[in-house]
């Protein structure tokens, strides 16, 4: 059998494929369904938060920041409650990262404020002396692409049944409304104005009032949501 395999490239290739495909089958498939179950009370991202998440991804924040708190006392002391499986149910893609050049951000919304973030992203050393993080000034002028964020929300709603426009916690109210693009946009604008005012930067408020949400505002909305 073995020597036959060595001389038949086709069956050899099939053999190799079976051997390498095996592990993934055993490891990934069994828990797949269970793993995607959200924790009680988990809600999908609102349009502005999702747009902020896209900014987070676009500038590869995950290259230096993790979003995974491990169950050690030193980590829960520093960052808060360790991460749970179901908290990530609406994370497409996951953003755990693999390197903490900067601190973990999974619950950053608990202990940082909008104006802290705005100052920090404009000039990191102004709030954290000695920081090696660069400033992300282009986020203060780039305009958030709400359309793509809406396209993503609508896609996951349609394809993966993410519960937008649904009553998740059973209190008879819609928890995360999406609706049409115009409706969603209007809600995002209001939310953005609130965040912009929290940053205490007039330029951001002015931009939002003109109907243009700076990327930083969306990003802060997303970071505040991480709790």
């Amino acid at each position: 059998m073995f020597s036959w395999l060595e001389k038949n490239p086709f069956f050899f290739a099939v053999g190799v494929f079976v051997v390498i495909a095996f592990a993934g089958l055993i490891e990934i498939v069994p828990d797949f369904a269970q793993q995607s179950r959200p924790v009680v009370g988990a809600k999908p991202y609102s349009l502005l938060e999702l747009a902020g998440r896209q900014v987070y991804i676009k500038d590869s924040c995950n290259a230096c920041h993790s979003q995974l708190i491990r169950p050690f006392k030193s980590e829960t002391d520093r960052y808060g409650m360790y991460s749970l499986n179901g908290e990530y149910a609406y994370d497409r893609p996951f953003l755990w990262g693999s390197k903490r050049t900067g601190p973990d951000l999974h619950r950053v919304g608990n202990y940082r404020t909008s104006d802290w973030h705005a100052n920090h992203m404009w000039e990191p050393t102004s709030v954290v002396p000695g920081s090696i993080m660069p400033a992300y000034k282009h986020m203060f002028t780039n305009v958030t692409d709400l359309e793509t964020a809406y396209a993503e929300a609508l896609t996951v709603k349609k394809v993966f049944n993410v519960p937008y426009d649904k009553d998740i916690d059973g209190d008879g109210k819609v928890d995360v409304p999406l609706g049409s693009f115009e409706q969603a946009k209007q809600r995002a604008m209001q939310y953005a104005l609130q965040v912009a005012q929290e940053t205490k930067r007039q330029d951001l408020v002015d931009m939002v009032k003109q109907g243009k949400i700076p990327e930083i505002v969306a990003l802060i909305a997303y970071l505040n949501r991480l709790k």
């Binding site: 990934i28 149910a89 609406y90």
Partner: peptide, 11 residues
């Protein structure tokens, strides 16, 4: 957008 979510995506 990724076909897998959260922990599945990580795996």
């Amino acid at each position: 957008v990724s076909m897998y979510a959260g922990t599945n995506d990580a795996m």
